[in-house]
Design a protein around this nucleic acid. Sequence first.
DNA 1: ATGAAAGCGCTAACAA
DNA 2: TTGTTAGCGCTTTCAT
Lengths: 345, 345
Amino acid sequence: MNRPEPDKPESDKLGSSVTMRDVAKAAGVSVATVSHVVNNKPGARIGDDARRRVQEAVAALGYRPNALAKTLSRGGSRFIGLVADAIATTPFAGQIIHGAQDEAWAHGYVLLVANTDGNEAAENEAIAMMLEHQVQGILYSTWYHREIVVPELLHQTDTVLVDCFAENSGLPAVVPDEEQGGRTATEALLAAGHRRIAFINTTSPSPAQSGRLAGYRSALETAGIDFDESLVFPAEPAQEGGYATAPRIVESKATAVFCHNDRVAMGLYDGLREHGLSIPGDVAVMGFDNQDVIAAHLRPPLSTVALPHYDLGAAGVRVLLGLKTASTHEQLMRVTCPSVPRQSI
Amino acid sequence: MNRPEPDKPESDKLGSSVTMRDVAKAAGVSVATVSHVVNNKPGARIGDDARRRVQEAVAALGYRPNALAKTLSRGGSRFIGLVADAIATTPFAGQIIHGAQDEAWAHGYVLLVANTDGNEAAENEAIAMMLEHQVQGILYSTWYHREIVVPELLHQTDTVLVDCFAENSGLPAVVPDEEQGGRTATEALLAAGHRRIAFINTTSPSPAQSGRLAGYRSALETAGIDFDESLVFPAEPAQEGGYATAPRIVESKATAVFCHNDRVAMGLYDGLREHGLSIPGDVAVMGFDNQDVIAAHLRPPLSTVALPHYDLGAAGVRVLLGLKTASTHEQLMRVTCPSVPRQSI
DNA sequence: ATGAAAGCGCTAACAA
DNA sequence: TTGTTAGCGCTTTCAT
């Protein structure tokens, strides 16, 4: 024997690969036995003694099962892929990752993420990579609610669309319930006694544009108020849009305004202030999105309706895992946008 | 023969497991050969004919290598773990994920993410999970720059700290260069001709608090301006803090203000406006963080200094992969905070 | 130039 | 109750 055994008694850092065999040897049992006790196999009768010895060996050696090997032999990994067009980029939509991760975790799955920046090549590479890693399925998400065309590769595995949808793709989708959100926002204003409620809507066609408008109308109708076309103002969905619309809001004599989103509300705040109007004293303002940095810290704090990003992510994995089926016939699952009351009403 | 072969000619969706053996059979060669051509092995002499047949079979069958099996047999996976305390939660720090993912990707690695919400149990579980998945190493990051105590488990693999550090842990860390950032911010004000520059600093002790102050002093000194203690105002690092400090800023006769962060600047805008002061006409304002939703959309748009989250993430994986060593003796790598000029100066 | 065969760490029959 | 053994899909000597 001339190969001096390199002495690494304790579980060291690099290549800390203590295998099941090592444990078996140390405990004086077979790998099968080790496997059974580490996994706490149900129908496995292991002697108290053997079990104890294995456990001790595991502890002593610092054994850690190799999840990859396990996957290989058992088939079916514990990975879920999340490919996003810009989700880690945009401020609050990162919550989709968070929700997906938590939910995946809760079911023993690990999240593999890839940001594609909307680049098609990157997207395909990302999906391919996930496929090669044997993901159980893929969550394909966008940073704002819209219709997409599904990348071909996605059909090679189970996938669910998150915060986006594709009409005849047959793929389940989880999206925010824009209409309910619009209704909720309007109802909050109604509840505060307002009857003349303006709506600053976005100019870009989208589920948000039509959905929130529908919700606004529906709430008014329910309250017995006639819809007044002249009270809905199209505007760029940003601060500038809200600011620019302020004069017309003042003219309209509306006592409350439902803004397409928080940024518009932020701009409106500025515009209204320049007109010497106070919020909510002179006019009540309702936002949408619940973009925290903005909404919670405007003066006064903005009442708004939240986009349920966290829930979208979580619901996405639930659907993927088959724990919850996208209910409606069109397998489109709408997630509630909750009201977030603050002081602008 | 009584087992009717289920006919799935085309690469179907579920269990689309076309293995290397299938390809080998189809091409009439051995798996070794297939392995060689798929991986384009350098020192492998494969006949033109065989190579072609393999490639055709691969295409025909829709073969896709199993990355997990590859890892098992070759040893050394292509995973990098990212455990964050709240990174997917907080608005802009999600950029750390983005940067890490892009860089990992560029080197053929896949990102495994876990959000722990600062919960220690979740944290350990997350790290353990990553270890079991044979990650090459772990990026441990926090959502704001601070000192941490390193979870014991992290020592079982290579890890680099991102946006945080631990004095005597021996672990490399990548953090924003707060001092340079403070200097840069102050210099921007100086460059615009200001000599009486106030600094609204946070009240919470942190690398940001001390670093930005040091940068502020250093810039003044270089400009030959005496540091005036009465010009630095402690304030809560949020809108409210900036708003509340406005009166004292006015009193101080400062012509420019460097705010600890953009939210403070946002509050200051409100306060200044109430005093009838305009920006930048009456007083110039500089922020810090470059929190997009705020900075780019205030009126006027806020000049600020960016926290380089994307770069932190990217640099983190570079250090982890040994492509770049955390230079200084203390293996603390400081990343530059770039100036983002807009219209508030 | 190509193939056979021995693993990688683990699971799951099946024996004993 | 415990051990043997044959894979899982792939890489990699080592023969041929």
